[in-house]
Design a protein around this nucleic acid. Structure first.
Length: 412
RNA sequence: GCGAUCGUAGCUCAGCUGGUUAGAGCACUGGUUUGUGGUACCAGGGGUCGCGGGUUCAAGUCCCGUCGGUCGCCCCA
């Protein structure tokens, strides 16, 4: 038996896989500033009620996927399964309301107790962007622009924006009732899974993967027939804004979102490159959420993206390399090399030192590290106040005065 | 929670219908080159065959259980 094992569904990454995640986060941070979203930090843990009340008691996320535990004070605490609820809690309890409307963004780990599979982990990382306190369709457009530009900068091809509206509360409940009626009348034609969804969450039958359900789904009532004038107008303004901004989208009239808090705009960027986990970034408008946490009626829109899923789709990131690697030979040389190394780093030159093994080994390590130069320091060189600088690409080597090392290594 | 599949060296894997000291490539260490890499050659270290039990004269190989990985269902980023 292995002495220690990682917790199921957690990851420990080194090298390319770790670099991929960092690349995604770096792009997110860059685009975030372009769109004027403020960086925020929120706790990894919240009182369980924060998630239970907002996400929906009947959703799988709340009913079976939360990492909840009782702390020593007897309080029920939950590891965040997403960011939105925690950010809204902070909006209320930290006085962020005074800055409304606010555009905020964050990223970090989230936790869901699920069976791991491709693109899905128990501890996973999300990017998150929210606009709180803004009920205008322009907010939806701006938020989608952020998402679209992020995916574009990550060079993720083939992720298409599927867009729908769930309407306002009246729309949604009228449509839901009609769907419920429709599916119930034809329950015998539905798959077992969908029959189970009938009472719990009839909307989800719409995106059932079972072929058996297709005919019933195709003939189901469509949201457009239930939209109030206001809801239709809002959606029209969102789509016009997207068109004006040059953001491509596809209408997905059967797109619904799993979490209870969504209203009006709902969207997903989907791909066929990640197996069963095609959704790479998703979100929507959640005008009722903050109220459900005891705050004032506050309109808001947001999205979340799976960092691991994005990381699987980007090109291999460029390797991080040192500009120069020092190879000291002998104790006196090691002390001198420490000095040179510190000087190089303080002047902004990425440098490293190979201090074990024979010379062949050390040069080999410098080569593996992708260094442009190797600086060889031995007693002979020290006595002359110089070091050997070798260009690993060309193989050429020359003596350079210790004082000129930084310049020699910076110069192309 | 359900289903399928896999689990042999640090990594990727081979090991045929059960049969002597379990192999390869890469990586690692040393050497060919007492201070010169990227190529090549030589040598070396490293394995309770996930774990537990069972069948058998004999189990890495068959059976059961268990833990873990992977992929799918549900659901979701």
């Amino acid at each position: 038996m292995t002495p220690v094992q990682p917790v199921r569904g957690t990851q420990s990454l080194l090298g390319e896989d770790a670099d991929r995640l960092a690349t995604v986060v770096a792009a997110f941070e860059r685009v975030r500033r372009l769109y004027g979203f403020k960086r925020v930090e929120v706790p990894t843990i919240e009182q369980t009620a924060v998630f239970a009340r907002t996400i929906g008691e009947t959703t799988d996320v709340v009913s079976k996927e939360m990492y909840s535990f009782e702390d020593r004070g007897g309080e029920s605490i939950t590891l965040r399964p997403e960011f939105t609820a925690g950010i809204c809690r902070a909006y209320i309890s930290e006085g962020w309301q005074q800055h409304a409307p606010i555009k905020v963004a964050t990223h970090g780990s989230a936790f869901r107790y699920e069976r791991p599979q491709k693109g899905r982990f128990r501890e996973f990382r999300q990017l998150d962007a929210e606009i709180i306190g803004s009920g205008e369709p322009q907010a939806d457009v701006e938020l989608l622009g952020f998402a679209e530009q992020l995916l574009r900068e990550l060079k993720i091809e083939g992720a298409i924006l599927k867009l729908n509206t769930l309407g306002d509360p009246e729309t949604r409940s009228a449509w839901r009732d009609a769907l419920h009626e429709h599916f119930r009348s034809r329950a015998s034609e539905l798959s077992d899974d969908s029959r189970a969804r009938l009472e719990r969450n009839p909307l989800r039958i719409l995106d059932s993967k079972a072929h058996q359900d297709w005919p019933v789904v195709d003939s189901a009532p469509v949201i457009d027939d239930f939209l109030t004038d206001e809801a239709a107008d809002f959606f029209g303004k969102v789509t016009q804004g997207l068109d004006a901004a040059g953001i491509h989208w596809e209408r997905a009239p059967r797109l619904v979102r799993g979490l209870d808090y969504y209203r009006h705009t709902a969207f997903e960027f989907v791909t066929d490159r990640l197996g069963a986990q095609g959704t790479v970034l998703a979100g929507g408008r959640y005008d009722g959420l903050i109220e459900s946490l005891g705050g004032p009626q506050t309109p808001a829109v947001g999205w979340a993206a799976g960092i691991e899923r994005l990381a699987m789709m980007i090109e291999v990131p460029a390797r991080e390399t040192s500009r120069a690697v020092l190879v000291p030979l002998g104790e006196r040389a090691e002390a001198a090399a420490q000095r040179i190394l510190a000087d190089l780093r303080r002047t902004g030159v990425a440098a490293d030192m190979a201090y074990r093994g024979n010379m062949k080994k050390r040069l080999s390590r410098a080569n593996d590290a992708g260094a442009a130069y190797v600086i060889i320091v031995g007693d002979d060189e020290l006595d002359r106040g110089e070091a050997q600088v070798k260009n690993l690409a060309t193989g050429e080597q020359r003596a350079v005065a210790l004082d000129d090392l930084t310049a020699a290594v910076i110069a192309a």
